[in-house]
């Protein structure tokens, strides 16, 4: 069992997400940085799909009441065991009674704690992930609190040698400036050429409204739209469209100087013009960006997005294959 002594800022149980319920307004949830999630599970020998803890900005303090094998990946949130510094991206053995805590975050936004066997919470609609807006899944549908006690599961598939470390193979941007690739659409017919130019050249700053639902970002000049007579049902503002489904990673214009990027706990449908979608493998990057960080967007074709997707899959597979 693991006992939460301090919860950290926002620590939730996550896996790769809950699919098949988007039409009912239920976002998939799941680890915002699936690369770091996968590598964390691999470092402790878990089956992919095992639940881990996603820890945002401030790490928790956790007492282990049994021997355990753990790994911490993602943000630069250095683990300490009984006050002694340990390595990120490494297979670590803990003894019953050990207390795991974390140094102040020194880069990135979200770290992942995998425990050999996985975090044991009920499977809800096919997933262990926590969707906090409605209180579904994870541990009681919410972020962890002091005093919570979680069991360790049985989803390990192999033993990984203690001390296995993949940090030299990791390429993860934990800086304050992020280049993100986008595919134009869904409603980019609303953008003028000037608007497209702004989208692909301006600096966007992440505001303090940044959580698992999405990030509100801002820029200094408005994103120019093609002036139109608003179609029936859309609403009178130029940024309004008749309600569309919102992809994860989409940018929508709830205000021409303050777009919103939707992440894994997204609202599924809405009536603001969606002007671009971040390609899936770059969502790993934005998971590590936080308030004040600068984003730049770069248009790619769907074929280039597929190429990037394959390159990312190969990168993760190679790291996982190197773990024995």
């Amino acid at each position: 069992m693991i006992k939460i002594k301090k919860p950290g800022l926002f620590t939730t149980v996550q896996d790769l997400g809950r699919f098949g319920f988007y039409d009912q307004g239920l976002a998939p949830s799941g680890a915002l940085d699936p690369n770091s999630y996968r590598i964390a599970n691999a470092l402790v020998g878990n089956q992919q799909g095992a639940a881990v803890l996603e820890m945002a900005y401030i790490g928790p303090e956790i007492e282990f009441t049994e021997n355990a094998v753990i790994a911490v990946t993602g943000a630069n949130m250095v683990p300490k065991v009984n006050g002694q510094t340990k390595n990120l991206w490494e297979t670590i053995a803990l003894k019953a009674g050990d207390v795991l805590s974390f140094k102040n975050i020194a880069g990135g936004a979200r770290a992942y704690l995998a425990v050999k066997g996985g975090i044991d919470v009920p499977l809800v609609m096919g997933s262990y992930s926590t969707y906090t807006p409605s209180g579904i899944g994870g541990y009681k549908g919410r972020a962890l609190k002091a005093g919570d006690e979680l069991n360790i599961g049985k989803l390990s598939e192999k033993d990984v040698k203690i001390g296995t470390n993949v940090s030299e193979k990791i390429s993860l941007n934990l800086g304050h400036h992020f280049d993100l690739r986008i595919v134009g659409g869904l409603c980019d017919y609303r953008l003028s050429e000037k608007g497209k130019h702004t989208l692909s050249h301006a600096d966007f700053t992440i505001t303090s409204m940044a959580n698992r639902v999405g990030y509100r970002i801002k820029l200094t000049e408005p994103i120019d739209l093609i002036e139109r007579e608003q179609p029936f049902g859309a609403g009178s503002s130029q940024t309004n469209v008749v309600e569309v489904g919102y992809p994860i990673g989409s940018l929508h214009l709830s205000g021409q100087t303050q777009p919103i990027i939707l992440l894994n706990d997204a609202v599924t449908v809405g009536g603001y013009a969606t002007i671009a979608t971040i390609i899936s493998c770059d969502l790993n990057l934005i998971a590590q960006a936080g308030p004040g960080d600068i984003l730049n967007f770069h248009y790619v074709t769907v074929d280039e997005a597929m190429e990037a997707r394959r390159a990312n899959a190969t990168y993760v597979q190679n790291i996982i294959a190197s773990i024995s």
């Binding site: 986008i182 595919v183 134009g184 659409g185 869904l186 409603c187 980019d188 017919y189 179609p231 029936f232 049902g233 859309a234 469209v241 008749v242 569309v244 489904g245 992809p247 994860i248 990673g249 989409s250 969606t274 979608t277 971040i278 390609i279 899936s280 769907v302 997005a305 597929m306 997707r309």
Partner: peptide, 19 residues
């Protein structure tokens, strides 16, 4: 109108106005 939403989504808009 057909459009891609990144590499994992396809968006089909049958009409701009609602009916």
């Amino acid at each position: 109108m057909y459009n891609f939403g990144g590499d994992e989504y396809i968006f089909v808009e049958l009409s701009r106005p609602f009916n």
